[in-house]
């Protein structure tokens, strides 16, 4: 039986905040960062914002609208909620707006697009072919785990139970980021070496 839009929304959130999902911490950290940027980090936790995001998701699907790429939608909605909360806080003269935070000002020096992408590419190439295929199906094509499972079976892979497949997907993402960190260090080292010559 196919899921209703509301059930699909619930599955998105349950999936995203499942214990082993490596994207969960990144999204929470992203929201923490926006709370810092708007001086609201003493007033709200990321979870407060995410609960409001979820409530807006419910309204959205009840109104017949779809959410095509959930993580992007969650990030955007969270940022706009925090902007609204900031405006409200200013309106009522909320006293606890605090901008003080140690902030690194050399972020763009740290992030070098070509080198980071190169590290990503090398990390991706170090994944097994079946892991690469899983990422492409899940991450790029945004397939549900059920659809990923069907896609893999069609490609001749054995059938996985959904929970096992989901855990495998999480492991692959974690592995990718670990490899990515390794590759990034190597690339940065080469880059720094050549730069200093």
């Amino acid at each position: 039986m196919s899921l209703t839009p509301r059930q699909q929304l619930d599955r998105i959130f349950e999936d995203l905040f499942a214990a082993n999902n490596p994207d969960a911490r990144i999204i929470i950290a992203y929201i923490q960062k926006v709370l810092y940027q708007y001086g609201l980090w003493k007033a709200y936790d990321p979870k407060d914002i995410l609960i409001e995001v979820y409530a807006r998701g419910v309204k959205r699907v009840d109104a017949g609208e779809t959410i095509r790429i959930p993580i992007a939608w969650i990030k955007r909605t969270a940022m706009n909620i925090i902007r609204e909360f900031r405006r409200e806080a200013e309106k009522i003269g909320y006293y606890n707006l605090d901008q003080e935070l140690h902030w690194n000002d050399d972020l763009l020096l740290y992030i070098t697009f070509q080198y980071d992408l190169k590290a990503m590419k090398q990390a991706f190439e170090r994944l097994e072919p079946d892991e690469q295929q899983l990422l492409n199906l899940r991450v790029v094509n945004r397939l549900s785990w059920k659809a990923v499972s069907q896609g893999l079976v069609t490609a001749g892979e054995p059938e996985f139970k959904l929970e096992a497949l989901r855990q495998r997907g999480f492991r692959v993402l974690r592995k990718l980021r670990k490899l990515y960190e390794e590759e990034r260090k190597n690339i940065r080292f080469q880059f720094d070496e050549s730069d200093s010559i």
């Binding site: 619930d10 959130f13 349950e14 905040f17 214990a19 929470i28 979870k47 609960i51």
Partner: peptide
């Protein structure tokens, strides 16, 4: 917070 969200949602 992740655990709370799992419970809450």
């Amino acid at each position: 917070q992740q655990a709370y969200l799992r419970e809450y949602l």
